[in-house]
Protein backbone atom coordinates (compact mmCIF):
# COMPACT_ATOMS: atom_id res chain seq x y z
CA UNK A 1 0.00 0.00 0.00
CA UNK A 2 2.89 2.28 0.87
CA UNK A 3 3.87 2.59 -2.77
CA UNK A 4 0.42 4.01 -3.62
CA UNK A 5 0.40 6.48 -0.76
CA UNK A 6 3.89 7.56 -1.70
CA UNK A 7 2.74 8.03 -5.31
CA UNK A 8 -0.19 10.20 -4.32
CA UNK A 9 2.04 12.28 -2.05
CA UNK A 10 4.49 12.62 -4.92
CA UNK A 11 1.68 13.68 -7.26
CA UNK A 12 0.47 16.38 -4.92
CA UNK A 13 4.01 17.58 -4.38
CA UNK A 14 4.71 17.60 -8.12
CA UNK A 15 1.60 19.64 -8.86
CA UNK A 16 2.29 21.99 -5.95
CA UNK A 17 5.86 22.51 -7.04
CA UNK A 18 4.79 22.84 -10.64
CA UNK A 19 8.14 22.01 -12.13
CA UNK A 20 8.69 23.38 -15.65
CA UNK A 21 9.23 19.84 -16.84
CA UNK A 22 5.86 18.68 -15.60
CA UNK A 23 4.09 21.71 -16.99
CA UNK A 24 5.75 21.08 -20.32
CA UNK A 25 4.45 17.49 -20.37
CA UNK A 26 0.92 18.62 -19.46
CA UNK A 27 1.16 21.39 -22.05
CA UNK A 28 2.21 19.03 -24.84
CA UNK A 29 -0.47 16.53 -23.81
CA UNK A 30 -3.17 19.19 -24.07
CA UNK A 31 -1.78 20.67 -27.23
CA UNK A 32 -1.86 17.32 -29.03
CA UNK A 33 -5.27 16.41 -27.58
CA UNK A 34 -6.89 19.72 -28.51
CA UNK A 35 -5.40 19.92 -32.00
CA UNK A 36 -6.24 16.34 -32.87
CA UNK A 37 -9.75 16.52 -31.37
CA UNK A 38 -10.40 19.73 -33.32
CA UNK A 39 -9.28 18.18 -36.59
CA UNK A 40 -11.12 15.02 -35.60
CA UNK A 41 -14.31 17.11 -35.33
CA UNK A 42 -13.62 18.90 -38.62
CA UNK A 43 -13.15 15.59 -40.43
CA UNK A 44 -15.37 13.27 -38.44
CA UNK A 45 -18.48 15.31 -37.63
CA UNK A 46 -19.51 16.14 -41.23
CA UNK A 47 -18.76 12.58 -42.29
CA UNK A 48 -20.77 11.25 -39.36
CA UNK A 49 -23.60 13.61 -40.21
CA UNK A 50 -23.72 12.45 -43.81
CA UNK A 51 -23.59 8.80 -42.80
CA UNK A 52 -26.31 9.24 -40.21
CA UNK A 53 -28.65 11.58 -42.03
CA UNK A 54 -28.64 10.60 -45.68
CA UNK A 55 -29.22 7.50 -47.72
CA UNK A 56 -26.78 6.82 -50.53
CA UNK A 57 -25.17 3.93 -52.33
CA UNK A 58 -22.27 2.53 -50.32
CA UNK A 59 -23.51 4.00 -47.04
CA UNK A 60 -23.44 0.71 -45.16
CA UNK A 61 -19.95 -0.05 -46.47
CA UNK A 62 -18.80 3.35 -45.25
CA UNK A 63 -20.36 2.76 -41.83
CA UNK A 64 -18.69 -0.66 -41.60
CA UNK A 65 -15.35 0.89 -42.55
CA UNK A 66 -15.77 3.60 -39.94
CA UNK A 67 -16.61 1.06 -37.27
CA UNK A 68 -13.53 -0.92 -38.25
CA UNK A 69 -11.39 2.23 -38.14
CA UNK A 70 -12.66 2.87 -34.60
CA UNK A 71 -11.22 -0.46 -33.55
CA UNK A 72 -7.82 -0.24 -35.26
CA UNK A 73 -5.09 -0.44 -32.57
CA UNK A 74 -3.35 2.94 -32.10
CA UNK A 75 0.06 1.33 -32.62
CA UNK A 76 -1.00 0.30 -36.14
CA UNK A 77 -2.06 3.85 -36.89
CA UNK A 78 1.21 5.03 -35.35
CA UNK A 79 3.12 2.60 -37.55
CA UNK A 80 1.42 3.78 -40.75
CA UNK A 81 1.91 7.47 -39.91
CA UNK A 82 5.51 6.73 -38.97
CA UNK A 83 6.11 5.07 -42.34
CA UNK A 84 4.47 7.94 -44.22
CA UNK A 85 6.51 10.57 -42.34
CA UNK A 86 9.79 8.64 -42.26
CA UNK A 87 12.73 9.74 -44.35
CA UNK A 88 11.87 7.23 -47.10
CA UNK A 89 8.10 7.89 -46.81
CA UNK A 90 6.07 10.09 -49.17
CA UNK A 91 5.93 12.96 -46.65
CA UNK A 92 9.47 12.41 -45.42
CA UNK A 93 10.82 15.71 -46.80
CA UNK A 94 8.50 17.62 -44.45
CA UNK A 95 10.64 16.42 -41.56
CA UNK A 96 7.66 15.95 -39.27
CA UNK A 97 8.64 12.65 -37.66
CA UNK A 98 9.30 12.92 -33.90
CA UNK A 99 7.52 16.27 -33.65
CA UNK A 100 4.36 17.38 -31.87
CA UNK A 101 2.73 17.81 -35.29
CA UNK A 102 3.37 14.16 -36.16
CA UNK A 103 1.67 13.19 -32.90
CA UNK A 104 -1.29 15.43 -33.69
CA UNK A 105 -1.64 13.84 -37.14
CA UNK A 106 -1.64 10.30 -35.74
CA UNK A 107 -4.07 11.20 -32.96
CA UNK A 108 -6.37 12.93 -35.43
CA UNK A 109 -6.59 9.67 -37.35
CA UNK A 110 -7.60 7.97 -34.11
CA UNK A 111 -10.14 10.61 -33.07
CA UNK A 112 -11.84 11.18 -36.45
CA UNK A 113 -13.40 7.71 -36.92
CA UNK A 114 -14.60 7.67 -33.32
CA UNK A 115 -16.24 11.08 -33.71
CA UNK A 116 -17.64 10.10 -37.13
CA UNK A 117 -19.04 6.79 -35.94
CA UNK A 118 -20.68 8.11 -32.78
CA UNK A 119 -21.97 11.27 -34.50
CA UNK A 120 -23.49 9.07 -37.19
CA UNK A 121 -25.32 7.00 -34.58
CA UNK A 122 -26.55 10.12 -32.76
CA UNK A 123 -27.74 11.76 -35.97
CA UNK A 124 -29.41 8.58 -37.22
CA UNK A 125 -31.53 8.55 -34.07
CA UNK A 126 -33.17 11.84 -35.11
CA UNK A 127 -36.35 10.81 -36.96
CA UNK A 128 -36.46 11.53 -40.69
CA UNK A 129 -39.93 12.98 -40.23
CA UNK A 130 -38.56 15.63 -37.90
CA UNK A 131 -36.37 16.86 -40.74
CA UNK A 132 -39.34 16.63 -43.10
CA UNK A 133 -41.23 18.76 -40.59
CA UNK A 134 -38.46 21.37 -40.62
CA UNK A 135 -38.43 21.29 -44.42
CA UNK A 136 -42.18 21.82 -44.46
CA UNK A 137 -41.71 24.99 -42.43
CA UNK A 138 -39.26 26.34 -45.00
CA UNK A 139 -35.89 24.94 -43.89
CA UNK A 140 -33.13 24.64 -46.48
CA UNK A 141 -30.73 21.68 -46.52
CA UNK A 142 -28.29 23.64 -44.35
CA UNK A 143 -31.00 24.59 -41.85
CA UNK A 144 -32.05 20.96 -41.77
CA UNK A 145 -28.50 19.84 -41.05
CA UNK A 146 -28.07 22.33 -38.20
CA UNK A 147 -31.41 21.38 -36.69
CA UNK A 148 -30.50 17.69 -36.86
CA UNK A 149 -27.16 18.32 -35.14
CA UNK A 150 -28.91 20.41 -32.52
CA UNK A 151 -31.43 17.61 -31.92
CA UNK A 152 -28.58 15.11 -31.63
CA UNK A 153 -26.31 17.43 -29.64
CA UNK A 154 -26.09 15.34 -26.49
CA UNK A 155 -24.93 12.41 -28.61
CA UNK A 156 -22.57 14.61 -30.60
CA UNK A 157 -21.03 15.95 -27.39
CA UNK A 158 -20.54 12.35 -26.24
CA UNK A 159 -18.86 11.60 -29.57
CA UNK A 160 -16.44 14.50 -29.14
CA UNK A 161 -15.76 13.48 -25.53
CA UNK A 162 -15.01 9.92 -26.65
CA UNK A 163 -12.66 11.25 -29.32
CA UNK A 164 -10.87 13.48 -26.82
CA UNK A 165 -10.66 10.64 -24.32
CA UNK A 166 -9.12 8.26 -26.84
CA UNK A 167 -6.54 10.87 -27.76
CA UNK A 168 -5.56 11.96 -24.27
CA UNK A 169 -5.14 8.41 -22.95
CA UNK A 170 -3.49 7.03 -26.11
CA UNK A 171 0.10 5.91 -25.85
CA UNK A 172 0.97 3.62 -28.78
CA UNK A 173 0.71 6.05 -31.67
CA UNK A 174 2.31 9.05 -29.92
CA UNK A 175 5.16 6.91 -28.71
CA UNK A 176 5.89 5.71 -32.24
CA UNK A 177 5.66 9.00 -34.12
CA UNK A 178 6.66 11.34 -31.25
CA UNK A 179 9.55 9.37 -29.84
CA UNK A 180 8.95 10.54 -26.24
CA UNK A 181 11.67 13.19 -26.46
CA UNK A 182 12.04 14.98 -23.15
CA UNK A 183 10.91 18.58 -23.27
CA UNK A 184 9.57 18.18 -26.81
CA UNK A 185 7.28 15.27 -27.52
CA UNK A 186 6.86 13.77 -24.09
CA UNK A 187 3.23 13.56 -22.99
CA UNK A 188 1.69 12.23 -19.77
CA UNK A 189 1.15 8.69 -21.07
CA UNK A 190 4.60 8.27 -22.59
CA UNK A 191 6.14 9.81 -19.47
CA UNK A 192 4.35 7.18 -17.39
CA UNK A 193 5.78 4.42 -19.58
CA UNK A 194 9.23 5.99 -19.25
CA UNK A 195 9.14 6.38 -15.45
CA UNK A 196 7.70 2.91 -14.91
CA UNK A 197 10.47 1.38 -17.04
CA UNK A 198 13.06 3.19 -14.95
CA UNK A 199 11.43 1.72 -11.84
CA UNK A 200 10.20 5.09 -10.58
CA UNK A 201 6.69 3.81 -9.86
CA UNK A 202 5.95 6.75 -7.58
CA UNK A 203 6.50 9.29 -10.30
CA UNK A 204 4.72 7.14 -12.91
CA UNK A 205 1.67 6.71 -10.70
CA UNK A 206 1.75 10.40 -9.82
CA UNK A 207 1.61 11.26 -13.50
CA UNK A 208 -1.27 8.77 -13.84
CA UNK A 209 -3.15 10.51 -11.04
CA UNK A 210 -2.64 13.84 -12.76
CA UNK A 211 -3.89 12.41 -16.08
CA UNK A 212 -6.94 10.90 -14.38
CA UNK A 213 -7.70 14.13 -12.54
CA UNK A 214 -7.67 16.04 -15.81
CA UNK A 215 -9.88 13.55 -17.71
CA UNK A 216 -12.20 13.12 -14.74
CA UNK A 217 -12.70 16.86 -14.51
CA UNK A 218 -13.42 17.11 -18.20
CA UNK A 219 -15.83 14.18 -18.27
CA UNK A 220 -17.54 15.53 -15.21
CA UNK A 221 -18.12 18.78 -17.03
CA UNK A 222 -19.57 16.97 -20.06
CA UNK A 223 -21.79 14.75 -17.94
CA UNK A 224 -23.07 17.78 -16.08
CA UNK A 225 -23.88 19.45 -19.39
CA UNK A 226 -25.72 16.41 -20.66
CA UNK A 227 -27.71 15.90 -17.50
CA UNK A 228 -28.61 19.55 -17.27
CA UNK A 229 -29.79 19.42 -20.89
CA UNK A 230 -31.86 16.30 -20.37
CA UNK A 231 -33.34 17.54 -17.14
CA UNK A 232 -34.51 20.71 -18.80
CA UNK A 233 -35.90 18.92 -21.84
CA UNK A 234 -37.81 16.42 -19.72
CA UNK A 235 -39.33 19.21 -17.75
CA UNK A 236 -37.77 19.45 -14.29
CA UNK A 237 -38.45 23.19 -14.67
CA UNK A 238 -42.16 22.85 -15.44
Amino acid sequence: MAVFIEAIVTAVRLMAEGSPELWNIIGVTFHVALVSTTFGIVLGAPMGFVMGASRFRGRSVLIALTNTAMAVPPVVIGLVVMMVLSRQGPLGPLGLLYTVDAMSIAQTLIAAPIIAGLTSAAVASVPYKLRLQARSLGASRVHEAFLTLKEARLGVVAAVAAGFGAVVRGVGAVLMVGGNIEGQTRVLTTAIVQEARRGDFGLALALGVILMTITFGLNGLITWYQHAGERWERGANA
Binding site: P127, K129, L130, S136, L137, K150
Partner: peptide, 13 residues
Protein backbone atom coordinates in the same frame (compact mmCIF):
# COMPACT_ATOMS: atom_id res chain seq x y z
CA UNK B 1 -45.76 29.58 -48.81
CA UNK B 2 -46.64 26.21 -47.33
CA UNK B 3 -46.53 24.72 -43.85
CA UNK B 4 -47.28 21.28 -42.49
CA UNK B 5 -48.14 19.41 -39.31
CA UNK B 6 -47.85 15.64 -39.09
CA UNK B 7 -49.34 12.73 -37.16
CA UNK B 8 -46.55 12.84 -34.61
CA UNK B 9 -46.00 16.47 -33.67
CA UNK B 10 -42.18 16.19 -34.02
CA UNK B 11 -41.45 19.15 -31.83
CA UNK B 12 -37.87 20.36 -31.79
CA UNK B 13 -35.85 20.38 -28.58
Amino acid sequence: QMAAAFQSPYLFK
